[in-house]
């Protein structure tokens, strides 16, 4: 019984992956991690230069699973009501009608999240965390399937409001895709001679199937030894000399879930250390607060994570 579940899940994942890859060339690792977070019910933060296909990716994903997709472009004068929605007074009926904001969707692309004021940011972040919003005292639930891809532009930092470190935890993983390989870039422009592949994307999975995959992920087994391994990694980050505050328990949970997802994608019912190591960087990196002295000495979260991983003995 379980075996079939696993097999189904793997098939569905491959299907989705292939579908996306028809549109997005290269970046397999990134898409794999993104789908991992997607199937775990977490959210993704992409740090990337403009024009690398983030919107396309989100749209493709939405189309592949046939759900609705909304995009918010964050600007400094964006108000929380622009995200959540607003109750507009209807004169005729003498009542307030709630017009839901873009957050009431399944797949949300929050573009350049670091350009909006902290108040606006927190409106979205709270929605992500609670899966509900409160409008004028009333609680409104968001969609069951709610997946946010937020993007940050690393270069332009004039007049930006960096996401508060405490809120970074809301994102399960952070990815920095980067530019394409030469061959891949050629492929992209060659394909678009014919027509944008996005237009020909079709739906391959339904919401139900997605929830089934999510359930299957939760059944992936992980031995106690590896659970200790995960927690050891997280605890070591707290001891690093370059870090003021290390990763929290949320990070341990996230790392475990993503490892399970990665194990599943590989067709296994159990997690192996390589899954954990693959997931560690994207899951933990953005949760670490690097001290300013280290920042200016060129210490990045990646370097810290590499060091942490090399310090801990891998169960072999």
């Amino acid at each position: 019984m379980e075996k079939t579940n696993i097999k189904n899940a793997v098939d569905r994942y491959s299907l989705l992956l292939k579908n996306i890859q028809k549109v997005i060339k290269g970046k397999e690792q990134m898409i794999k991690m993104l789908l991992g977070a997607f199937f775990c019910g977490g959210h993704v933060l992409l740090e990337d230069v403009p024009g690398t296909g983030k919107t396309t990716l989100a749209k493709t994903l939405a189309k592949s699973i046939g759900t609705n997709f909304k995009r918010i472009q964050f600007t400094p004068d964006l108000l929380p009501s622009d995200i959540i929605g607003v109750s507009i007074y209807n004169h005729q009926d003498n009542n307030f009608v709630f017009h839901p904001g873009p957050v009431f969707t399944s797949i949300l692309l929050a573009d350049e999240i670091n350009r909006a004021s902290p108040r606006t940011q927190s409106a979205l972040l709270e929605a992500m965390g609670e899966k509900q919003v409160s409008v004028e005292g009333e609680k409104k639930m968001l969609n069951n399937l709610f997946f946010v891809i937020a993007t940050e532009n690393p270069i332009e930092s004039h007049g930006t409001y960096p996401l508060p470190e405490s809120q970074m935890d809301r994102f399960m993983i952070k990815l920095s895709p980067g530019y394409l390989e030469r061959d891949e870039e050629v492929l992209v422009i060659s394909e678009q001679l014919i027509g944008h592949p996005l237009n020909s994307t079709s739906r391959v999975l339904g919401e139900e199937e997605i929830f089934q995959v999510m359930d299957t992920i939760q059944t992936v087994r992980i031995s106690e030894e590896l659970r200790y391994y995960i927690v050891d990694i997280i605890r070591t980050t707290r001891n690093s000399e370059h870090v003021t505050v290390g990763a929290s328990v949320r990070a341990s949970l996230a790392l475990m879930k993503i490892s399970q997802a990665l194990a599943l994608f590989d067709g296994r019912e159990f997690v192996i250390p390589e899954d954990i190591q693959e997931a560690a960087g994207p899951v933990i990196g953005h949760r670490l607060q690097i001290i300013p002295q280290a920042k200016f000495s060129g210490i990045t979260p990646q370097i810290v994570m590499e060091k942490v991983l090399s310090e801990i003995k891998i169960p072999t």
């Binding site: 087994r221 296994r268 019912e269 159990f270 997690v271």
Partner: peptide, 12 residues
């Protein structure tokens, strides 16, 4: 190799 991994890491 898969069997080896399963023996080593799978709780079952």
């Amino acid at each position: 190799y898969r069997l080896h991994l399963q023996m080593r890491y799978d709780p079952r």
